[in-house]
């Protein structure tokens, strides 16, 4: 809201466009439209392919602007029949929700704490910052999880990546921008730290916290690698992306062509999988979009 206003004021400056300026703008707009086009073209192709006819899809090997052949939902009905896809969906939802809640809570605690000035905060902020630069690496992290007995449990996916030093630094900056007078007033009214954090600071730093939440959601929704090393024997716990990765191999073109007679409807399955796994996150992102304005990086306020 605030940003839009300032833009309006800024356009108060009147400049008469010259010919060169108009040419530039036209070229600029065409270029930008081209970029936007390239960005969504592959996604459009996938969506069109997912509702194509299997055989027509196999024979046409160009970009699809409209579905190849007759519109068919054969692929969707085939995927709906795959039980592991729905299991994966369920697990991904569990991971996304729990990891985001935990991540936002930890980020809020860290940010709130570091926004206060005590002797300990500096020491602890260095401790947290160090983790940004130096980490144990793949194998040591794996061994810690194994020692803790977290391998092949959902916690191996939920806990380790839920927050990081960058999120906490972002939250810290946001909490520092909360006017001290409000916090003082609350303290005088007998408000403790926990209550202050949840009921006063958090609502005032909501934008940044939403950005953190969004990052957690997107990260978890799209993650497959941790599951592939931490959940090796617990296939029931696999998130959607890992299930997809495997199914993509099963239904790759060369694999389909191996089995005779060739079932051409199977060519559509890959695309259907992409569509059903991607659409939810694409629908969710406009919801977060109004908080993008609050996005700051590494504590730098724009």
């Amino acid at each position: 809201m605030k940003k839009e206003k300032s833009v309006k004021i800024s356009t108060g400056m009147v400049e008469h466009p010259s010919v060169g300026r108009i040419v530039f703008l036209v070229v600029d707009i065409i270029l930008l439209l081209g970029i936007a086009f390239v960005c969504i073209l592959p996604l459009w192709h996938v969506i069109m392919a997912s509702i194509s006819d299997g055989y027509a899809l196999y024979t046409t090997k160009s970009l699809l602007f409209v579905p190849a052949g007759k519109i068919s939902f054969e692929g969707f009905s085939k995927v709906i029949a795959l039980s592991q896809v729905w299991k994966g969906y369920g697990m991904t939802l569990v991971y996304v929700v729990s990891s985001t809640v935990l991540g936002v809570f930890l980020t809020m605690c860290g940010g709130y704490y570091l926004s206060k000035k005590t002797l300990w905060t500096k020491f602890i902020s260095i401790l947290i910052l160090l983790t940004m630069m130096f980490n144990g690496g793949l194998v040591p992290t794996y061994m810690v999880l194994r020692t803790l007995g977290l391998l092949n449990t959902p916690f191996a996916i939920i806990i380790p990546g839920c927050t990081n030093a960058i999120y906490i630094m972002m939250a810290m900056t946001a909490f520092r921008n909360v006017p001290p007078s409000i916090e003082e007033a609350a303290t005088l009214d007998g408000c403790g730290h926990w209550r202050m954090m949840f009921q006063i600071s958090f609502p005032m730093a909501k934008g940044i916290m939403m950005v953190v939440a969004m990052n957690c959601v997107v990260m978890q929704w799209n993650s497959w690698f941790p599951a592939s090393i931490y959940l090796t024997t617990a296939r029931d716990l696999w998130p959607l992306q890992l299930v997809m990765k495997e199914l993509m191999n099963t239904y790759s073109e060369s694999n389909i062509l191996k089995t005779l007679p060739i079932d051409f409807d199977k060519f559509v399955i890959q695309y259907v999988l992409i569509v059903i796994s991607t659409i939810p996150i694409l629908i969710a992102c406009p919801f977060f979009q109004r908080y993008f304005g609050d996005m700051t990086v590494g504590g730098v306020k724009e």
Binding site: Y113, V144, H193, W194
Partner: peptide, 24 residues
């Protein structure tokens, strides 16, 4: 009372960032 707040965060970083460093 304030320092209590950081405990879960500290635990998180010690377990998932500093313990692995021992694994180095």
């Amino acid at each position: 009372r304030l320092h209590i707040i950081i405990l879960p965060v500290l635990a998180f970083f010690i377990i998932f960032s500093y313990f692995p460093m021992i694994g180095i």
